[in-house]
């Protein structure tokens, strides 16, 4: 897993870590049971304060993406999402609405949008280009 931060994005660094770890698990480049780097290692690698990395890991744990085994570090949880399916679907409603709105403004609608989602999904599966 290779994380990259962009301070210019305006997105808080801890949130960038959360999103990138989630993307890596979704893409399969980070699999269930695999370890995340220790907080200090990642903090030094990304030139971040450990508080920021700790905050990201706490958030990932809270979201059920990773688990913290005291003394051994943080690991990606195996598939079993703790939330029920309808709750999981509800989580996606808001980003999808935002996507539809944005797609409308750039005149991409209907099947074309679905195709685009499939294409992006496929590329994500192939890993970072």
């Amino acid at each position: 897993m290779r994380l990259q931060l962009n301070f210019k994005s305006g997105k808080p660094p801890y949130r960038q870590i959360v999103d990138q770890v989630k993307a890596a698990t979704a893409a399969g480049s980070l699999r269930a049971g695999e370890a995340l780097p220790p907080i200090r290692t990642l903090a030094e690698q990304l030139r971040l304060n450990r508080n920021t990395v700790a905050k990201a890991y706490a958030e990932l744990e809270h979201q059920g993406i990773i688990e913290n085994a005291p003394g051994r570090g943080c690991f990606v949880r195996d598939g079993g999402q703790p939330l029920r399916k309808d709750a999981r679907r509800a989580l996606l409603a808001e980003p999808i609405d935002a996507l539809i709105v944005q797609a409308h403004h750039v005149q991409i609608q209907g099947e074309e949008l679905i195709d685009l989602i499939r294409e992006r999904q496929r590329r994500l599966g192939e890993g970072p280009s």
Binding site: R40, A43, E44, R47, N49, R50, N51
Partner: peptide, 10 residues
């Protein structure tokens, strides 16, 4: 600077 701050917070 980052190694020393990392070591300090550990």
């Amino acid at each position: 600077i980052r190694t020393v701050i990392g070591a300090y917070q550990e």
